[in-house]
Computed example of a mutant assay.
Amino acid sequence: MARRTATRGSALLTTLLVVGTATVAVPDPARAATPATVCRIRDGRLTEISGMVATDSGFVMVNDSADEASRRRIFFLDTRCAVVRTVAYPSRPRDTEDLAVGPDGTVWVADIGDNDRTRSTVALWTLSPGARRPVLHRLTYPDGAHDAEALLLDGAGRPVVVTKQGGSAGVYVPSGPLRAGATVPMNLAGQVRLPLTTTPNPYSFFGRRLVTGGATAPDGRSVVLRTYADAFEYDVTDGDVVAALTGGTPRIVPLPDEPQGESVSYSRDGRFLLTVSETAGQPPGTLPTVLRYARPATPAPAGSSLPAPTASDRAPTASGGATTTAPPDVDPRVGAGGTRSLLLGVGVIAAGLLLAGLVGVVRARRTRR
């Protein structure tokens, strides 16, 4: 989740992007259904919401790595978005970014954010029903540090972490059972490539490429990943979430113009997708609002082409063309497959320029130590 600073963009983002071949039809954002308002959150401790999950009694939410101790808690809300209780951590989390709830009611907190990619371990906290404190489980990546904001649970209750990076996002799973007080290595199980859309959002092109949250349907038969712009729902067969993400064709729900959308959940009856945005940096009086979107009915057909990119869909050019604002915590390490597809036909721009430009973006949120 990103905190704002006065500087959002950078003159170094001088990348000419040409959209290459596409194989998934994208719904027209202009025809996107208007979401229904579920409730508004008036508790001043919840302004940088990075994770949300719906429960039978309401919602569970977390902020990102907040400075104030009162914000670094697990928040339980009723169906009207009023906070009814909070749970503290036994030690300070680093950067909590997403939530999940297991079939037994265990709440999973994904402490996996790492904007600067310096963490030697990431963590998952589990809060069992009736427990007073969550339990810490540490994990390591097999290929260096990653920033991540999405947590899913597969049919066996195994956590699945999806990284926040452009192009192809990494899908990681623990190599064995989690153990309290121990560090478990993760394996790279595959990569997920999201279709490119034209949905308007605060970060334009970049906002459509970065995975900022995820959720598993109550019946386990589907999962959803979201970006700042859209939700992508995948069918799950036999509980195999990895296979769904790495080999499935998603259905797309545009989430246009959410101010800082990073959270997504299924409703408890599984009929809707729910989102909430943070409001830090928004106009005074803006309240975080839980929105409800209808789930898509059918998969997007293969073999269709994407609409041509408009000026607002292109990154800034050296000649001063269309401009955009990159998310403050954009991952500069675009996957190899994403680079080929997104920069197709750009023979004059070296990959190093893209890396330099993105690294030059001033990140508005730093991971707290």
Rank of each mutant, 00 (worst) to 15 (best):
L210C: 04
V211L: 15
V211R: 12
V211C: 12
T212S: 15
T212W: 09
G213T: 05
G213H: 05
G214L: 11
G214I: 07
A215S: 06
T216D: 07
T216W: 05
T216L: 01
A217C: 09
A217I: 14
P218H: 11
P218V: 05
D219V: 02
D219Q: 08
G220L: 10
G220Q: 12
G220D: 09
G220S: 03
R221C: 08
S222A: 15
V223Y: 02
V224R: 01
L225T: 01
R226G: 06
R226C: 11
T227Q: 04
Y228S: 13
Y228N: 14
A229D: 01
D230T: 01
A231H: 00
A231Q: 01
F232K: 06
Y234I: 10
D235C: 07
D235F: 06
V236N: 00
D238A: 15
G239K: 03
G239P: 03
D240Q: 11
D240Y: 05
V241E: 00
V242R: 04
A243N: 13
A243P: 07
A244R: 02
A244K: 02
A244I: 06
L245V: 07
L245D: 03
T246K: 01
T246I: 03
G247P: 10
G247C: 12
G248C: 11
G248R: 05
G248K: 07
T249H: 12
T249C: 13
T249L: 11
R251T: 08
R251M: 09
R251G: 08
V253G: 02
V253F: 03
V253T: 15
L255Y: 09
L255W: 04
L255T: 05
P256T: 07
D257V: 06
D257S: 08
D257C: 06
E258I: 10
P259K: 06
P259W: 03
Q260R: 14
Q260Y: 13
G261S: 11
G261Y: 06
E262P: 10
E262T: 09
